[in-house]
Amino acid sequence: MPILSYIAGPREGKKQELLEELNRLNYCEAFPADNVDILILVTDTPDKETEEALQKRLKHMKNMESLSMTFGYNDELYEGERNDSEA
């Protein structure tokens, strides 16, 4: 169940459209920078298949110029830590 964050660059003049499009997608939350043409995207998918499908979808969005990952978290890797905090 990965949680990832990205900096997304919209095509020229398409920041608002891209923002709305991303926020309509399942498992996605996006918010814009006020003074620079970029968006922050956080994705939180339940399983590997959904994650792969979402990645594919993101790659083909026509209002998206660039997408670079800044953070990656996968539950499986952090099982021990999570159990600690739930204890």
Partner: peptide, 23 residues
């Protein structure tokens, strides 16, 4: 998720000095 967003914002801040995120 907050940490993920934080990390993206921190990276953006290092790439674009003065960037802000009111939303």
């Amino acid at each position: 998720k907050s940490a993920a967003a934080t990390s993206a914002v921190a990276t953006a801040a290092s790439l674009f000095p003065g960037i802000s995120f009111a939303d």
